[in-house]
Design a protein around this nucleic acid. Structure first.
Lengths: 353, 353
DNA sequence: CTTCTCCATGGAAACGATTCCATCATAGTT
DNA sequence: AACTATGATGGAATCGTTTCCATGGAGAAG
């Protein structure tokens, strides 16, 4: 195990100073003859500059961080692939963390990135906007992907009655009000996607459409509410946590408590999977007994029987664009990007029975 | 954007030398009173040691690298989740790269890791053993997961005649012969898994069983050959590259060229997906016309119709164990670990028609 | 009381790059 | 010929840590 050549070795072998080597290698000015000699020696010694030295001097780690809830979820897998593809073509390393949709783990991972001086991060956030504020204040360039961080729970709003009074009383002198974070993001056009799906189902005659949501689906739920309009039957909106079990339980519970519903819109591929499973378990036929639309297209949607009608979102592109943005950041502050979705009609929806 | 406190700030504020702070923080010896004071000051200043400084001094980056062919493949997603879970609990960063099953990209990524002084790597290798030798010689601890690197193509074997002469002439002074790499690995018990599947299919009366392989499935193919025994009908073994299209083409081609086959063993989940699709396209009913076993269990296997009979392999565990090994390496050289597989019978196999 | 040992402690030297700044040579201008 | 502008060059400082080593003081053993 031979040790690597350092810039000093190159300088010595080429008979120049280290400063010159550094300049040649990073495109500074140097006479053609020196340049040539240095490059030759560097190649000959198989010299590769150590990122360690450079990083320390520049007080920042190259590359970027990527935080996703769960790489097992095929959507995040595609997103990550997009990020990695972009990073690879730029020769930059990517530090990946999986948060499990748990704000606490997310915080720890943010801390880890801070410690590593990773100052560019792409995140599918699980925590509050407040969880991200410290990172941004520390100088991190953060680009959110797929979702935006929730606007922080106002402690007053959380716990009922007396708090309303409190809120009233303190309205003027209140501490910094819960507010959204303004940070660039790359998102799918959830609003349009959901609306398209709801319109499609309505067009088939469905009146009782349920929404199966998961963590981070706030914008989708909001879009669903908007698309369905008043009066909203609140029981038709149910939530699961990130796990498969929870998704199944939510779906199964929904079908059992509301036998009158005729269509379900699943907010993500795991929810869709759970819905198919639960329906099958309860002997509900798709689409005769219940119609199903899944948000997010996955390869197996076609293999399912019936093949699932879905709203496709460009997961890979989301990642790729986010990586581009975070790499180009610094020149000018990147602005939020919204990518289109597409309704793909297969076989899981039918007219209201 | 305020800048972070350094160890010097802490030392000054605590009225001690930097060496003492360093010792306190990394568990060296110090008097209880100093220790307490330093810790208090550090907490108060919200001091976090910079990984940059430490890494440079120790000439190595903490954490580990992870190289997989494709995060979009649910198996590698699970494997990555396992690695990340273990790393997270150790507080270590993971640099992830996706090779696309391309040896060239893999080499570039290895180079990137070398440049970053990442000296511990978990890899699902795509390239030769030769591609990995330099990294190992440079002092990297490499643990292979899921597969072993192929034993290098002997250049003489590759290109015919003239080379034989060359080989003859140089036989004595020849460069080190192509040989396998001896490096620890964490693998699924492919041999047992494949054998179980083949026996299961044989037991159902199948005599013409085909194998659909992908990149890195060498060990599975070998196991298949062994399990089927002589005489082997070579046409029944077909290969695809990593892409979905290629997998579909291979499956479709197989079904069309050999209408006499009665069972297919798909070497990975993408191959299985392709087989289902191709069969459906050609109006072959599963399992009446053709039986199908897929290597690797995925959530959608149950949603398929019929639900797929699979050989499950513990993807997440493979990743987790590999990460454990690579973290514990250094004490003693880790040895290869083989994890069990399990045949899960669902509905995609039937008696020979 | 002396000597020896043991620990806590802080100064300073790494680690490997980038970059500021001073120096020097050469060419161009008056 | 004298002076200036320009560009190449190398020395040295710097980044934030860890770690080696010397120092000094306290306690134990003689």
């Amino acid at each position: 195990m031979e040790k690597r050549a350092t810039i000093k070795d190159v300088a010595q072998a080429a008979g120049v100073g280290v400063a010159t080597v550094s300049r040649v290698l990073s495109g500074g000015s140097a006479s053609p003859s020196t340049r040539e000699r240095v490059l030759a020696v560097a190649a000959q010694l198989d010299y590769r500059p150590s990122a360690l030295g450079r990083n320390l001097r520049q007080r920042r780690t190259g590359g970027m961080g990527l935080l996703v809830p769960d790489l097992t979820d095929s959507f995040f897998g595609r997103l990550a692939e997009g990020v990695l593809a972009c990073a690879r073509s730029a020769g930059e390393p990517v530090v990946v963390g999986s948060t499990g949709d748990d704000p606490e783990q997310e915080s720890e991972l943010i801390g880890m990135l801070l410690e590593q001086s990773v100052d560019r991060v792409i995140a599918v956030p699980s925590g509050d906007a407040d969880a991200w504020r410290p990172a941004i204040r520390a100088g991190m360039t953060v680009i959110f992907a797929d979702r935006l961080p929730a606007v922080p729970q106002d402690p007053a709003a959380a716990s009922g009655f007396g708090d309303l009074m409190l809120l009233d009383g303190l309205a003027a002198a209140a501490p910094p009000p819960a507010r959204a974070l303004d940070a660039p993001a790359v998102l799918a056009d959830d609003r349009a996607g959901i609306r398209t799906a709801v319109r499609y189902l309505s067009g088939l005659g469905h009146r009782r459409i349920a929404f199966l949501g998961g963590p981070g689906h706030d914008r989708r739920v909001a879009a669903f509410r908007e698309a369905v309009g008043e009066p909203m039957d609140e029981e038709l909106i149910v939530f699961a946590t990130g796990s498969r079990d929870s998704a199944y339980a939510a779906a199964s519970g929904l079908f059992q408590s509301r036998p009158d519903l005729s269509a379900v819109l699943a907010g993500g591929n795991m929810l869709g999977e759970a819905a198919v499973l639960a329906a099958r378990e309860l002997d509900l036929r798709v689409p005769q007994d219940v119609s199903l639309v899944m948000y997010d297209d996955v390869p197996w949607a076609e293999l399912c029987s019936p093949p699932l009608t879905v709203i496709a979102q460009p997961g890979r592109d989301i990642g790729y664009r986010a990586a581009e943005l975070v790499l180009r950041a610094g020149s000018r502050r990147p602005r939020t990007v919204v990518l289109p979705t597409e309704l793909i009609v297969r076989g899981s929806c039918g007219p209201r029975r």
